[in-house]
Computed example of a mutant assay.
Amino acid sequence: MKNSAKNFAFWTSILTGALLLFIGGRFFAIPEPATTAYGIHVPTNGDFSFQYIKGIRDIFTGAILLVLLFAKEFRALGIALLVGCMIPMVDFSIVLTHPGSETARLYPHLSAVLISLPLGIYYLRTARVKKV
């Protein structure tokens, strides 16, 4: 059981990090469709500042998760996942309160919270504390 939980956490973490890299990259490559997929649509008039901010935030988050995972810094990964939960929580509330938002656009943000919380707890509970 322990080994299967470890494998599940490992592969879910890889998938989460890679998906965040993809989502972040999409905000740079195709900013308007990425914004709509996020759950809001605002006129940009050709200024994609918000999209680039959102994109680099997701790229950084995905990269830090993968770096911590492959460096086997599981305690730090658990902390990053738990603290990082504030991002999809706030994203959820932004989409929820945005006029004309679609309920379906809330699910990715909620899913991120439901993935990050248990993963973060798992890594914190199973990580060995290094003695100095």
Rank of each mutant, 00 (worst) to 15 (best):
F48V: 04
H41K: 05
Y38Q: 09
C85Q: 13
I59S: 02
I23T: 11
H109I: 06
G46Y: 00
Q51M: 03
L82P: 15
G120D: 02
I94A: 10
V132F: 12
Y52T: 06
R128T: 14
A29H: 07
L117P: 04
Q51F: 00
Q51P: 00
I94F: 01
V129M: 10
L65K: 08
R105G: 00
I30G: 11
S111A: 01
L65H: 10
E32H: 01
A29D: 03
I121C: 11
S111D: 01
E73I: 10
Y123Q: 10
R57K: 00
G62E: 04
F70M: 11
Q51Y: 01
I40T: 05
F74W: 07
F92N: 14
Y123V: 07
L96D: 14
I94L: 12
G78D: 02
K2T: 14
L15V: 13
V129G: 04
F28E: 06
L124C: 06
F50G: 02
K72H: 10
T36C: 03
L96A: 15
D58H: 05
H109Q: 05
L77E: 00
G17W: 06
F8W: 15
G39V: 05
L96Y: 13
K131Y: 05
M89Q: 15
L117D: 00
K54H: 03
R105E: 04
H41I: 07
R57Q: 03
L20V: 09
Y123L: 08
T44Y: 00
R128F: 08
G100P: 08
S4G: 13
H98D: 13
G78E: 01
A34M: 03
G17A: 05
P108R: 06
E102G: 06
R105L: 08
K130S: 09
L68P: 13
E73L: 15
L19I: 06
N45A: 04
S4V: 13
I59G: 02
L119P: 02
D47T: 03
G46N: 02
A104M: 10
L77K: 14
F70Y: 12
V95S: 08
T44K: 01
F22D: 08
N7V: 09
Q51W: 02
S93C: 13
Y122F: 13
K72C: 10
G17K: 08
E32W: 00
P99C: 09
K131G: 12
A76E: 06
F70R: 09
P99Q: 07
S101Y: 01
Y52I: 05
L81Y: 12
G120A: 08
A5E: 06
A76D: 07
L114E: 04
V132T: 11
A37D: 02
L81G: 02
R125Q: 12
S101P: 03
L124G: 04
F28D: 04
D58Q: 09
L69Q: 05
T12M: 09
K131V: 15
T44V: 09
I14L: 15
N7Q: 15
I56D: 05
A127Q: 12
N45S: 07
C85A: 12
Y122R: 11
F27A: 12
R26G: 11
T126G: 06
P99A: 13
A9T: 08
Y107Q: 01
K131C: 12
E102M: 09
N45W: 00
T12I: 09
Y38I: 07
G24A: 14
V42F: 00
F8Q: 12
F74T: 12
R128K: 15
F8K: 13
A76S: 14
L82N: 11
R57V: 04
L117S: 01
P108L: 05
L81P: 07
P33V: 08
Y122S: 07
P33C: 10
G24C: 10
